[in-house]
């Protein structure tokens, strides 16, 4: 398995270079270094000299991808792309364009993101699986049909609706929780209730539908019929046999998103005023801060690859027949 993991890590390197290159190209198609300088220097009374000085100080006075003026390897290394990207592979994110240490900011802002994402995942998982099992138990009845209609309706509704609706009902109309905000440490709990409820409810439609499909696929298999023929109760069959055998696709979906929980949710964090990594990324995009954008995209890619490797490893844990080679 070690060789397999090593190979996957080596595969990741060209993927990360590619992701970096695409991010770089996309960013600089929309924003030139001069645009970035203007954004950071302000809109009023900006002189050409000030723009040149800003670009020089931040290393944006080089060519983007290829340096005609340099010779040999320097024609590739003395470029914005190389200078700004190579340190990422050592997880040195450097400073944002306004001078703040990105690594420090990420270490601070990942906690609020996790504070929402982990409970949403855990509670959502528990609820969705339970509800899916319940529907499967009553498959082909009015409970099943009614639930599917409800779930399709729920997954058709925009997440923004759940957010605004939740804020309206729980905070504005019933005065039960703060409408937005955050606090440090244990004081954060009252700010987490609403986003977690909204996150869980918003995910019920798609999550439960997905698990229902998995369970229905399993329930038609021979081993289930055998279990029933042995006289096991339907509850026992569902929890002990169907659920266990459906764990592989469930794990695929869950483990792959585990590392990405750090990255936060863009809309939720913005609407609830949560100072997590999602709002960090959005702010960086609107402020044309390439240093943060490239760091967050790189981190996202690394975490996604990590999630896929973890998923592969988890297969071997759940299903002894699976061997990684």
């Amino acid at each position: 398995m070690s060789a397999y993991i090593l190979r996957r890590i080596l595969y990741a390197i060209p993927i990360l270079i590619g992701v970096n290159l695409i991010t770089f190209l996309l960013f600089f198609v929309v924003n030139s270094p001069e645009d970035m300088a203007r954004m950071h220097l302000g809109q009023k009374r900006v002189t050409t000299e000030a723009i040149q000085a800003w670009k020089a100080e931040h290393g944006y006075d080089r060519p983007l991808l290829y340096n005609d003026a340099a010779s040999g390897l320097a024609s590739l290394t003395d470029t914005i792309f190389f200078q700004k990207s190579v340190k990422l592979f050592a997880f040195q994110f450097g400073s944002s364009d306004d001078g703040r240490d990105i690594g420090y900011d990420i270490s601070q802002r990942m906690w609020p993101s996790l504070a929402i994402a982990v409970p949403v995942l855990m509670v959502g998982l528990a609820f969705n699986i339970s509800y899916a099992l319940f529907i499967v138990f009553f498959r082909a009845t009015y409970i099943d049909i009614g639930s599917v209609v409800l779930l399709v309706a729920m997954l058709s509704i925009s997440s923004l609706f759940y957010i605004i609706g939740g804020q309206f009902l729980l905070s504005k109309a019933f005065h039960l929780v703060p409408i937005s905000g955050y606090d440090q440490g244990l004081n954060a709990w009252k700010f987490l209730i609403l986003p977690v409820i909204v996150g869980v409810i918003g995910g019920i439609g798609s999550g439960t539908r997905w698990y229902r499909s998995l369970f229905l696929e399993e329930i038609a298999k021979d081993y289930v019929r055998t279990a029933r023929a042995k006289g096991l109760s339907e509850r026992f069959v569902l929890f002990r046999h169907v659920l266990r055998n459906a764990l592989i696709p469930i794990l695929t979906g869950v483990v792959v998103v585990l590392p990405l929980l750090f990255m936060g949710s863009l809309i939720t964090e913005s609407f609830f005023g949560i100072p997590g990594l999602g709002s960090y990324t959005i702010d960086a995009i609107s402020n044309q801060d390439f240093a943060i954008v490239r760091s967050m995209v790189f981190l996202g890619a690394v975490l996604y690859i990590l999630g896929l490797i973890l998923t592969d490893i988890s297969y071997t844990v759940v299903d002894p027949r699976v061997r990684l080679q």
């Binding site: 605004i164 804020q167 905070s171 504005k172 005065h175 409408i179 937005s180 905000g181 913005s270 609407f271 609830f272 005023g273 100072p275 709002s279």
Partner: peptide, 16 residues
């Protein structure tokens, strides 16, 4: 001063 990016929560907090 609290960071409030969206109009809806900002307005409702004022009304509250």
């Amino acid at each position: 001063y609290s960071l409030e990016k969206e109009d809806i929560p900002r307005w409702n907090k004022f009304l509250q």
